[in-house]
């Protein structure tokens, strides 16, 4: 082991890192190999399979989650880096809402933005972050803000409509 007083890296043996963080408002603790990405840890260790895997190199956005208030490609973050972080996944977005869906998720359905649905959890997370940072985005701003999330069904127009719809709903709330 490297010269360090940090015990956490060795807590459960040389090959595993113990990570304690908050996921969707609940405390979570996992032991993972150091190379395990947050994406894989969420999916495999925590069973939160709403976060999807496609390119696994930060190009498609299917694995987008919100970490400490900002979107992250969870394929490009080690689970170990999540120590102490506050993580929001798609499963946490509508928790506590009637029907289990938040206004944004409702808007996706209303606007017809969902086709095969595989990219949708990532799209929803990216859209949620966009609206938190820019509550009244223009079409260009939506396209820019969402451009890291690929949709091969190419429901882009419908997703833009869903984001606009949500912005309107939130403005009158």
């Amino acid at each position: 082991m490297i010269p360090t007083e940090d015990q956490s890296a060795d807590e459960v043996g040389a090959d595993l890192v113990v990570v304690t963080c908050s996921v969707n408002g609940e405390s979570a603790r996992v032991s993972v190999p150091p190379h395990r990405t947050l994406m894989d840890a969420l999916r495999n260790e925590l069973g939160l399979t709403g976060t999807k895997t496609c390119c696994a190199e930060g190009e498609c956005g299917a694995c987008t989650v919100i970490v400490d208030g900002a979107t992250v490609n969870s394929c490009l973050m080690l689970a170990a880096e999540a120590e102490g972080c506050d993580i929001l996944t798609v499963e946490g977005l509508g928790a506590g809402e009637p029907g289990g869906l938040c206004d944004l998720q409702e808007s996706f359905l209303e606007a017809g933005a969902v086709q095969c649905g595989f990219c949708i959890p990532g799209q929803v997370m990216a859209a949620e972050y966009l609206l938190r940072t820019n509550p009244d985005p223009s079409v260009d701003e939506i396209r820019e803000g969402m451009s890291g999330n690929l949709c091969r069904c190419a429901g882009y127009q419908r997703i833009v409509a869903a984001v606009e719809l949500t912005a309107r709903k939130r403005a009158t709330r």
Binding site: R43, G50, V90, G94, G99, G117, P121
Partner: peptide, 23 residues
Amino acid sequence: APIRRYGGAARVSGQQDFLADLP
């Protein structure tokens, strides 16, 4: 009529099980 997609709620909430999600 523009009926909402069947299975849409599961898809927007991450509950839809695709192949890689099956345990």
